[in-house]
Design a protein around this nucleic acid. Structure first.
Lengths: 227, 227
DNA sequence: GGATTTGTTAATGTATTCATTAACTGATCA
DNA sequence: TGATCAGTTAATGAATACATTAACAAATCC
């Protein structure tokens, strides 16, 4: 909490607006396929239209919303096809990161955060705490990509992830507990440590493929056309 | 020309500024690793700071520049490591698109633009017109990605491409004429038409790998640390 | 002479004002 | 009755005004 406030200290209102609007979208306070006027958002965030507008333009560039003149900004929803497209990209980029990480001759100490995340998932599974599991899972994937050592992949993955955040949150409680997935994580961890690049790549590809197929079938079964 | 002017008719100044600043960067009128004040850019573009600022924030999100308070916007240069990172991503995404295109059961008519580009490259090679070749090559790659049918890949590739545009332009006249590369293009064309997804993927991977290795060695030989 | 501090400058970041224009309402006409 | 057109409204998009603050310079103190 304090860290967050501190972090925002030297940020411009535009960047604060960007983060806050993102949060409002993720939390569902701003609904997908709905429009919100700039004035409305400015009031809500307690600032003038100027930084809010800057934020919306940045978020439009990221694909989270569309600025529709005289109608307000429209929060983009995600179709099943979108989900498939996004997961395809996500898979490709993460697998690339996994391969790179395995080639980077990393030591156990380098992989500490990755292992921490794996353990956190195990704990969360034991106590059936889905929220905690989701957080640890995200930490795992973030750290994996970071270990890949390609900054651009990091930011691209982060951007794309933002676009499916709502869908993931939506299905979190519909999913069976992913008891099996931690086996994949451990296998990947070992491959990276051993420097087995292709194994890391392939393991992760299967993992991601399973996860995305599950997610998409859950959405379909729930009759969800858009999220 | 007229099309461009027309295109800009209904665009906001912010979007015009974004395009124009990009052009200024690509053409080298704005130098990498140099700073330009917002006022300066606004004067140059004949508009007020407001839309210019919006443009710079969008371009910062895209990674082309950095907004440095009180120092002006700094045009980002690209290191060899950056080039490697970028080409790695580009390769992965384009190969994905190639695979998808091959799976999409496309007919000859669908592949017309791709073939046009191949022919244009051949013509350009015959007359040793590097500029024309580069344009056709870009058209080929753009169309390939479009045929992949994943909009997000299109925009990501386009963004990433923008980041290496200067480097490519720089080496264009240093390169030997890429007489061999059109064989790769034709092979890819055939693979897509025949629906041979893995061949399309692998052909393009090799093609991209060669191209990036060549580009990077050219930059290294030229003693270029940053572009 | 060097370091520190205060004052000034200038560029950013935000708010506000203004102009433009799409959307809506109602009225007129066929 | 329905359609078209004028007038009004309201939201955007841009310019300008204003506040803030980092950077630089000058002056003072040790």
């Amino acid at each position: 909490m304090r860290a967050l406030a501190k972090e925002q200290k030297n940020q411009s209102s535009a960047l604060i607006a960007k983060d806050q609007i993102k949060q409002l979208i993720f939390s569902g306070e701003l609904l997908a396929d709905s429009n919100y006027l700039e004035t409305e958002l400015a009031d809500r965030l307690g600032m003038s239209r100027t930084p809010v507008r800057q934020a919306t333009l940045m978020l439009e560039a990221q694909g989270l919303l569309e600025v529709q003149p005289r109608k307000g900004v429209r929060i983009n929803s995600i179709s099943i096809k979108d989900m498939e497209d996004i997961y395809e990209i996500l898979t490709e980029l993460e697998c690339l990161a996994a391969r790179r990480a395995a080639q980077a001759d990393l030591k156990k100490t380098d992989l500490k955060l990755l292992l921490d995340a794996i353990n956190a998932m195990e704990t969360a599974l034991a106590s059936e705490d889905r929220e905690a599991w989701a957080m640890a899972d995200e930490a795992f994937h973030t750290e994996l990509v970071r270990l890949g050592g390609n900054r651009r992949i990091e930011s691209m993955v982060s951007n794309v992830n933002d676009q499916v955040r709502r869908a993931r949150a939506f299905t979190l409680n519909m999913r069976p507990l992913p008891t099996k997935s931690n086996k994949d994580h451990k296998k990947l961890y070992t491959s990276i440590l051993k420097g087995n690049a292709e194994a890391a790549h392939d393991t992760h590809r299967k993992h991601r493929k399973n996860a995305s197929e599950l997610l998409i079938s859950l959405l379909k079964n729930a009759g969800m056309k858009r999220v």
